[in-house]
Amino acid sequence: MNLYFRLFWLLLWRMRHARRIDFLEVSRLAFRAWPTDCDINMHLTNARYPALMDLARTFMLAEMGLLKPFLQRKWLPIVNASEFTFIRDIKPLRKFHVETRILGWDEKYFYIEQRFVSDRGLHAIANVRGLFVCKGRKIATTELLQAAQYQGDMPELADDVLTWKQLLQSKKQQNQS
């Protein structure tokens, strides 16, 4: 996390005025691309996307009402994998939103989609696979869902997410020595 000013703004101001969303609802967090976020090509640098996504996932947990209870339990989110598709650049001073939603889960991971959107349309889309840990222990998905008081059905993962999941498993198997 290299955006401390934005993190403090998020924790001290934005979360206090966050709307309440359901577990599978889309969270939207507004940003502006500051010149310090941009590279020599005069657009948002590729390295900034994951940092902004961290903030947006934190905000999503706050909107769900889960950030405080999870932190009280000392549950920490860990990103296991991510994949990006860049569609169009975000220019300096451009306002945009990061839309974050849970796509689904399995016995170990949650799958999250994050979209960078402005009035010009979709700029980038990323999928993130993550889990929560506490003192080196992986928190079971069932325990997380229970703490979130989610009682609905598990959404079916889209074919592209299932393919990505298989690719990640294949990479893991190929690199185990």
Rank of each mutant, 00 (worst) to 15 (best):
Y111P: 08
R101T: 14
W13I: 12
L52D: 01
Y111M: 08
E63G: 07
D106M: 14
L55I: 02
E25F: 00
T58V: 13
R120F: 10
D54I: 03
S27A: 12
T100D: 06
D160Q: 13
C134F: 04
K91L: 15
L122F: 07
H123E: 10
P77K: 12
F59R: 08
L122H: 12
K95F: 13
E107P: 03
R73S: 07
L44C: 04
M154W: 00
T36P: 00
I112M: 09
V133T: 15
D22G: 15
Y109G: 00
L157V: 07
L61T: 00
Q166D: 11
R115M: 10
I78G: 02
I40H: 02
S82P: 05
N41D: 04
G121A: 01
D37N: 03
Y49C: 02
R73D: 05
F59E: 11
F116M: 11
D119S: 14
E63I: 04
R137T: 11
W34E: 03
M60Q: 12
F86T: 09
R32E: 06
L122Q: 09
H17G: 01
R120H: 13
L157K: 02
D37S: 01
I139P: 03
M154E: 15
F31M: 05
A140S: 15
C38T: 06
A158H: 13
K172G: 06
S170R: 14
A47P: 00
K108V: 09
T85Q: 15
N41E: 03
V133Y: 10
E63K: 11
L131S: 14
E156N: 11
G136Y: 10
T163Y: 12
R16S: 03
T141C: 14
Q151C: 10
K171T: 10
L122E: 10
L55K: 02
R19W: 00
P92C: 05
R88G: 03
C134E: 14
C134M: 11
R115L: 07
F86I: 09
D159S: 11
M42D: 07
V98G: 10
D106T: 03
A124P: 07
V128E: 05
L11N: 05
K91W: 11
W105T: 09
T58W: 08
G152A: 04
A81R: 14
V133E: 15
K138C: 10
K95V: 13
Q146R: 15
I87R: 15
R73W: 00
W75L: 06
A56I: 01
L52S: 01
Q114W: 12
L67Y: 10
R20A: 11
R48V: 09
L71G: 01
V98R: 06
L52K: 01
L131C: 15
T100N: 05
